[in-house]
C-alpha cells in the first residue's frame, strides 16, 4: 500500500478474519431481501397506471444492482480495506469502503473499553471492541474480531490504560 502516494497515512498492520466476509455477505443478503420486499410490495400493490410508470422497472433494477454490490463486491472489498493494529502507544484502525477513515487513539487517553457482540456477530463468532475517549468523535471501533481475540485485546488495553493513564481529557 505504501507505493500509493495518495495515501495520507500508513495503514494499520493487521487484517480481519475471513469470517467477517461471511458476516458482511449475510448483512448484504438481509438488506437486499428487505429492499426487495419493499419493491415487491410496491409493484404488487400500486396499480399499473400508477403515478410514475417508469418506477415499475427502475426500482427493481436498482435493488438488483444493490444486491450484486452488497453481496458480491462490497464484502471482499471491505475485507481488503479494513485493518487494525494495537501498538505500544496507540490503537489504530482503518475502516470504510469508498470513503476510508483512519482513526488513532493513544492508550493514555482511553477512558473505557467495551466489547459488544451483535446477534449476527454471535453466529459468526465475532465481536466488536469499542475504545472510547473524552471526545465524542474520538471513538475507535475495531469491528468483527474473533470473540476471543476481542476479549484479549480489551483486557490488554484496559490493563495498559491503568498503567499509563494521565488526565485523559
Amino acid at each position: 500500500m505504501t507505493a500509493d502516494s495518495a495515501a495520507p497515512v500508513r495503514d494499520p498492520a493487521w487484517s480481519l478474519s475471513r469470517s467477517a466476509i461471511g458476516l458482511w455477505v449475510t448483512e448484504g443478503v438481509l438488506g437486499a431481501l428487505f429492499y426487495g420486499a419493499l419493491v415487491g410490495a410496491f409493484v404488487l400493490f400500486v396499480p399499473v397506471g400508477g403515478p410514475v410508470p417508469v418506477l415499475r422497472w427502475v426500482l427493481p433494477s436498482l435493488v438488483a444492482v444493490y444486491a450484486v454490490v452488497a453481496i458480491g463486491i462490497r464484502p471482499w472489498y471491505r475485507h481488503r480495506v479494513h485493518r487494525w493494529e494495537v501498538t505500544e502507544e496507540a490503537v489504530y484502525t482503518l475502516t470504510g469502503w469508498l470513503t476510508r477513515t483512519w482513526t488513532l487513539v493513544p492508550i493514555s487517553r482511553i477512558q473505557t473499553v467495551d466489547v459488544t457482540r451483535g446477534v449476527l456477530q454471535q453466529l459468526f463468532g465475532l465481536a466488536t471492541v469499542a475504545v472510547l475517549t473524552a471526545s465524542s468523535q474520538g471513538t475507535v471501533r475495531v469491528w468483527h474480531l474473533e470473540a476471543d481475540v476481542a476479549q484479549r485485546v480489551a483486557d490488554d488495553l484496559a490493563r495498559r490504560t491503568e498503567l499509563v493513564r494521565d488526565e485523559a481529557t
Binding site: A6, R100, T101, W102, T103, P106, R109, G138, T169
Partner: peptide, 18 residues
C-alpha cells in the same frame, strides 16, 4: 488531542487530499 481521525473519500483520493 485525544485522537486523530483521517478521512479520505474516493474523490479526495484522486485529488491527493484528506
Amino acid at each position: 488531542v485525544v485522537g486523530w481521525q483521517v478521512r479520505q473519500s474516493l474523490f479526495q483520493r484522486r485529488a491527493r487530499l484528506a
